[in-house]
Structures are given as structure tokens and as C-alpha cells.
Design a protein around this nucleic acid. Structure first.
Length: 423
RNA sequence: GGAGAGGUGUCUGAGUGGUCGAAAGAGCACGCCUGGAAAGUGUGUAUACUUCAAAAGGGUAUCGAGGGUUCGAAUCCCUCCCUCUCCGCCA
């Protein structure tokens, strides 16, 4: 959520930036400013009425203590109008604040100046491409066939137990999952992230804090009996650890990593592109999150991207980095880099990580602040990235490393898997 | 799930209708003291909105959350959330 004061002070720039995101309702900006004027006016009225009423109440107390009952009664009888005023203006104010809020949440975050204009994924900017695409033999198999051939993943069994999109990992397939999780967590810890293990369900306030609510409600599984949501990403519980927190300046940057399963309803997405591991309702992911000083966040973004790229390089996977264009970025992000690996058998790029800087868009809602050099509270910047999401990594690993005799495990993983080949 | 107790500032903890944004202590910050430190000592120490060109200062709200009673609520009433103790259940 953008800050109203920022919108007031930077109207032109806000409009300009929103255009990069192809925001369709620029009139909203002026409506918000006008509504905020009205809010201030009403707030002042309410405060004045309250001040008068408070003064009168105090006076009644003094009169009572002085034994001047008659005068106290007179004053009491006069308070009725203030009470009515306070109630009426209070309701007005609440209505205005609600309306203002409803409009404010419609504004997406402002994209960073480096974000290219554009509306479709084709307009994303390829920042770099790294690693050679492997040449596979003619009879190379896609990962879902490899998974069946080597008895690594049983999709049908998952359907039986739960439904489509909930695979069962078996044998070396299961061990590979565990190995990747440990490897990613160890790498994150080496990079200075402290590990957390988190609740997989969150309450409404948390889902709201990171922006899943109210706009993305349909993407989360909801446990109605207890009013809880299954997390779509560890970002939600990790970032919410810092909800309503005021950090000391020297505590920044805060760096956390965590492994969680992620649950996504992905309603209505079926077909060839979501086959196998390409899109699931439940998948595993290690997430990295930082809370930074506003001056540092873009440096940190770069550093987080390099961390993710390092993982892909260690795994020996060809990848490319995309800077998402305004139209393809998420609502809450100011800058997003996507990392994609080349899936050799499917002959397509698969998104395996997304590293975003949210600036103050999340922290404003979360009330996540720090005390700056002047001793005042200021909103911190939040960033997060996948490091990494497992299924598509598994997909590319299986496909790219397949040989006539089996699938070769990358060297860095062998200490974790304790086997070098899947045969 | 049943019975009871309770939720106050960074923490401990006082406060059962008015002078309470809230005693006291601890912690923290700055100063004095000291060769330096500890001890001691002095001062300061919530957040948000708003008024003002700005600072100073002022107003309003907030004692788990929301609602109510009252001229006036941390204090009384209702609903919800959470914590603790005992019982039940249980990995």
C-alpha cells in the first residue's frame, strides 16, 4: 500500500510511474488526494469536538468536588450536543477512512526507474544468460516420463490421496527433495541468513500484511473452521514476524531464510504447460527475506539475485535473468528479477525464482519500521526471493542430466543425496 | 473440550470511575562524577493522526481487539482473541 503523504507530495511522479505499470485508473490518484483532504478536515472537526467535550467533563468533575452540584448538573445537560457531534463526525470519519482505504489498496506499487515499460512477458528484459544449454539425445524424455521410468515421483498416487497437483515423491525422488532443501538452507546460512521454521497456516492479519488479502484471496487454501489460510509462500509468515515492529537502525538488515511447503490453488490452470512438476498445488521452497534500510534495498536486491544465480551455477543449470516489465510485475513489487532455468527436454524456460524489492509497499501495511538517524520512525524496505523453488529445479535436473544409463546428480548435491546416479 | 485466573509502556509491576499517557523500579540514551570503568548521581525515554511555513508548543486517539453504560472508563457491562493453572484428550 502506498503512503498517502507520498502521493500528495509526488503526484506527478506517481502518475508517471503508474503508467509504466499500465495502471488503468489514473483518476484514482486525485480522488485519493481529495479524499485525504476531506479526511483531515473531518479529523480536525472531530478533535475539536472531543477537546470541548473533554474540557467540559473535566469541569464537571471539578464542580462536583467543590460541592457545586447544581452547576455541575447544568453543565451535564449541555453535553448532549457534543456527544451527538462526536458520534456523527466519528461515523463520517470512519466512512471516509474506509473509502480512502478502498481506493488506496487499488494502487499498485510504483515500479523502480529501471523497470522497462511493457505489458506482456515478451517485453521482459533479458539481463543475462548463463551456462550452455545441453544437447540431449533424440530419445530424451521430459521429466514426468523420467520420474515414472526411475520411480521417483508418482503423480497418480497423489491424485488418489489428495488430487491433481499433489505429487508423491518416492525413493531417490524423495531423497533428492530432502537433499535440495538442505543444500539451499545451508547455502542461505552461509550467506548470512538465519534459518526459521514457520507455521504453515496464517491468520487473516498476516495474509493481509503481505498483501495476499484482500486481492489474492482465491489463490490461497482457506481453513474455514479456524479462519486460517495455508501459506502460498514462506514470505508470508517470515515477513509477518516483523509486523508492528520498530527495529533499531543497527539491527538492519534483517536476513531470514526458511523452508516450507507452499500451497496454491492455481484455480483454472490445466493443460500441457502445467504437466508434471511445472505447476503444483503443493510444492517445496526455500525462501530468503531481508528487511533493509531504504538506502540499501537495491544493493541488497542485487546481492540476493547473485545468491540465487550462484545456486543455479553450483547445480550446473543453464539459466537466464529477466527484469520484469511493468505489466508483468506483481502488484506489490517495485522491481522483480525472475530466474529461469532451461528445461532441455521441454525446450522452454522455467521460472524457478523471483526476487523482488517491495520498498515500503509491504512495510506500510505491516507497520514495519526502524528508528532512523534522527530518532524518528521510518518504514523499512522488504525484499524476498525464492532460493529456490524445488519442483522446476527437479524437472530441469532430471531432464538436463539424463543419459543413456541414468541421471547424474550434480556434485554439490552428492554429499546430501549420498548417491551420484539415479538408475 | 470443561472449570478457574489473568492480559497495563522495552521489561517487572501499581492503579477498581475524574487531577491517568498512566506510580515505582529495571533497562536504555545523554550528562556529571572517575586516570578509566563499576557504583553513585541528574535529565530524558511510546505510537499514530492532526494544528503550525517550520521549530517550539498545542489538540485528538491508544492500558489485548471491538462495542456499550456514564458528563467522564485502564478501572463497570457485553462479545471476541490470547496467556496461565487444574481436569479431559493426545503426537
Amino acid at each position: 500500500m502506498l503512503q498517502v503523504n507520498y502521493i500528495r507530495d509526488n503526484r506527478e511522479q506517481v502518475l508517471d510511474r503508474l503508467a509504466v505499470k499500465n495502471f488503468k485508473q489514473p483518476l484514482l490518484v486525485d480522488e485519493i488526494i481529495q479524499l485525504d483532504d476531506k479526511r483531515r478536515q473531518t479529523q480536525t472537526n472531530l478533535d475539536n469536538s472531543s477537546a470541548e467535550a473533554n474540557a467540559a467533563a473535566k469541569q464537571v468533575g471539578e464542580l462536583m468536588r467543590a460541592g457545586n452540584k447544581a452547576e455541575a448538573e447544568v453543565l451535564k445537560s449541555k453535553t448532549g450536543t457534543w456527544k451527538e457531534d462526536i458520534k456523527r463526525i466519528g461515523e463520517q470519519l470512519a466512512a471516509i477512512e474506509d473509502e480512502l482505504y478502498q481506493k488506496l489498496v487499488l494502487l499498485p506499487n510504483l515500479p523502480h526507474s529501471s523497470v522497462p515499460k511493457g505489458t506482456t512477458p515478451e517485453e521482459n528484459e533479458v539481463v543475462l544468460e548463463n551456462g550452455a544449454k545441453p544437447e540431449l539425445p533424440q530419445n530424451a524424455l521430459p521429466h514426468w516420463e523420467l520420474a515414472a521410468k526411475y520411480n521417483l515421483i508418482d503423480f497418480e498416487l497423489g491424485v488418489k490421496i489428495t488430487g491433481a497437483g499433489f505429487p508423491v515423491y518416492k525413493n531417490k525422488g524423495a531423497k533428492l527433495q530432502r537433499a535440495l532443501i538442505s543444500f539451499f538452507l545451508d547455502e542461505a546460512e552461509k550467506a548470512g541468513y538465519s534459518e526459521v521454521m514457520l507455521p504453515l497456516m496464517v491468520n487473516e492479519a498476516s495474509a493481509f500484511g503481505t498483501g495476499q488479502l484482500p486481492d489474492k484471496e482465491g489463490q490461497m487454501y482457506f481453513v474455514g473452521n479456524d479462519n486460517l489460510y495455508l501459506i502460498p509462500t514462506a514470505e508470508v509468515p517470515i515477513t509477518n514476524m516483523y509486523r508492528d515492529v520498530i527495529l533499531k537502525a543497527d539491527e538492519l538488515p534483517v536476513k531470514n531464510c526458511g523452508y516450507t511447503p507452499c500451497f496454491r490453488r492455481e484455480a483454472g490452470s490445466y493443460g500441457a504447460h502445467v504437466r508434471g512438476l511445472n505447476r503444483l498445488h503443493q510444492f517445496d521452497k526455500v525462501e530468503i527475506v531481508q528487511v533493509t534500510h531504504p538506502d540499501q534495498s537495491y544493493q541488497v536486491h542485487e546481492q540476493m539475485c547473485l545468491h540465487v544465480q550462484g545456486l543455479l551455477e553450483k547445480l550446473g543449470l543453464p539459466y537466464r535473468v529477466l527484469r520484469l516489465c511493468g505489466g508483468d510485475m506483481s502488484f506489490a513489487s517495485a522491481l522483480t528479477h525472475d530466474m529461469e532455468t532451461w528445461s532441455a527436454a521441454q525446450q522452454r524456460w522455467l521460472e524457478v525464482s523471483s526476487v523482488s524489492n517491495f520498498e515500503t509497499f509491504q512495510s506500510n501495511r505491516l507497520k514495519l519500521r526502524f528508528r532512523n538517524a534522527e530518532g524518528k520512525t521510518q518504514l523499512a524496505h522488504t525484499l524476498n526471493g525464492s532460493a529456490l523453488a524445488l519442483p522446476r529445479i527437479v524437472a530441469t535436473l532430471l531432464e538436463n542430466n539424463q543419459t543413456e544409463t541414468g541421471i547424474k546428480i550434480p556434485e554439490v548435491l552428492v554429499p546430501y543425496t549420498k548417491f551420484e546416479w539415479i538408475t
